[in-house]
Design a protein around this nucleic acid. Sequence first.
DNA 1: AAATTCACTTGCATAATGCAAGTGCTTTAA
DNA 2: TTAAAGCACTTGCATTATGCAAGTGAATTT
Lengths: 137, 137
Amino acid sequence: MSKDKERSNCPISCSLDLWGDKWSLIIIRDLMFAKQCTYGDFLKSEEKISTNILASRLKTLEQNKIIEKLEHPNSKSKVLYKLTKKGIDLLPVLIEINLWGGKYFSDIPDKTKTLLKEVKKDKTAFLKRTIKKLADS
Amino acid sequence: MSKDKERSNCPISCSLDLWGDKWSLIIIRDLMFAKQCTYGDFLKSEEKISTNILASRLKTLEQNKIIEKLEHPNSKSKVLYKLTKKGIDLLPVLIEINLWGGKYFSDIPDKTKTLLKEVKKDKTAFLKRTIKKLADS
DNA sequence: AAATTCACTTGCATAATGCAAGTGCTTTAA
DNA sequence: TTAAAGCACTTGCATTATGCAAGTGAATTT
């Protein structure tokens, strides 16, 4: 993706330089909400990312300290991907995108509807709870 | 950009299908915070979008009802671009990206620093005020 | 010991992006 | 009133990113 050349020093532009493509936030979404954390798990997602793109995104997300690679407790052939603090801090962004999408798209999965209901009931509580869950796991 | 084929019915994925590229949110940012609203204004932004990409993004944003084209009050040769309600509703997304970027990037423009201070002081008030300003203009 | 799983790579076709120059209508200045 | 400049784009072409299918090598299961 990006050759790490920032277009400006605007935080929005810089953020997009890191994860402003069609796939990075999908990976981050899976790590946040679907607890998918191995390479193979990401491939199973509905959006059907291709293997080379997945590998390249995981690499740049890792380089930018948004995710980290860990040893899998049960297997030497598996790799665990996890969000760092910096990655977990993207939760509010993902939530707001989810809310916007929930408002303007129909046919949203039931699982997502449930999640959005929780968020709408008490956003602060949801954030706190989810951050804790992600940090502890 | 996208040929309007949704990858899944996840709201995050659908949202990214509409504006998940490197430029769309830059245009939306300009409309929200920099009051830039003509084709030429967008070209003046620091990030230096090229003319053909700008034209194509404006077209898809308009097709997706995120922005709209209006006649310029003073000139027949100019065009005014404005955020629709749907576009204005992206404000929370932009704010959260700004906050994340503000936390993880240095050398942020003074103008942005000021804005972020306002947001941090009272996010709800900032949102309300900005939405009103955008809707009225 | 062979087959399978797993996390990737590689090669190649297709699509998106970026740059420079051009078009045609509108507005300004002489 | 006419020439020059401004404006919102288009066009052509080179470069880069994406997407698909097949392959690789180490670890694990059978």
